[in-house]
Amino acid sequence: MAFSHRHIIGTQQLSKADIELILETAESFKEVNQRDIKKVPTLRGKTIINLFYENSTRTRTSFELAGKRMSADTINISASGSSVTKGETLEDTAKNIEAMNADVIVMRHSCSGAPDYLAQRLTKSSVINAGDGFHEHPSQALLDLLTIKEHKGKIEGLTVAIIGDIARSRVARSDLYALKTMGATVRLAGPATMLPPGIEELGAEVYTDINEAIKDADVVIMLRIQLEREGGNTLIPTLREYAQFFALNTENIKLAKPDAIVMHPGPLNRGVEISSYVADGVQNVILDQVENGVAVRMALLYLLAGGSDEE
């Protein structure tokens, strides 16, 4: 078996074999999460630091649980309440954490490229990108793929529609790279202001009409309208208008295949990008995504921290 990566920065760098290995490893760890005693000794003695410069509940909790269920010591550092507020640079913070012999640094940052910047400067620790700016969120894409594989039995040949703020979505980019690598057809749709120019060069079909994008799709992934970003730089006139044209509802979901699944990276804005009827409907697999998130993060931590460089 070969897993040649020391860091997980994006799905863009992962080959088909890499993704298959990560998903298979995650399937093995799923069994642990279903036990009464959800703990295995695999990474005992390893230290995992969650370094979060941006708010997160799901991702941080998921990485923390993943580390703890493998007996690693998991520490959370958030930007507020740390020396970051005292003016320490990113590089100094990370070098200090590395000096404490952290094996893996899981990092979220509002600047695209921040985890990559660290990965190039750290000599011992591995870096996992837990979301950087508008760039990538690889663990989210991998848990999406695991969820799709579980429900559809395969990924290759499926049609996946991703709807919403494509321009500012790191999830959309990570999903796109990973789904294309695995041989799926990817459709992107949203208001023209939310579709970045040139995105079709990455191999996606681009639509401005949600109905066309959803038609006969096997999987519909709804992206969150990022209210915290809408404040400064508005790409849509009003939330109500957005909901009227781009929300997934009980009518337009009928255009997808009858057995299509509905996914969402969370947190949900009910009534904005997804109606409550669909969010709670039989086709939604949103909580499966959350469950699979822990298993996928266990797999990533194991693959990075479960081996050594010396042979």
């Binding site: 078996m1 897993f3 290995l21 298979e24 490893t25 399937e27 093995s28 760890f29 069994e31 642990v32 295995v40 000794p41 695999t42 990474l43 003695g45 390893k46 493998m70 797999a299 194991y302 693959l303 921290a305 479960g306 081996g307 050594s308 042979e311």
Partner: peptide, 17 residues
Amino acid sequence: TMYRDDVGHGSVRPMGK
């Protein structure tokens, strides 16, 4: 594999079910 005493020694091993 999850219970081996040599995790972290040598290259990472594939995980079975």
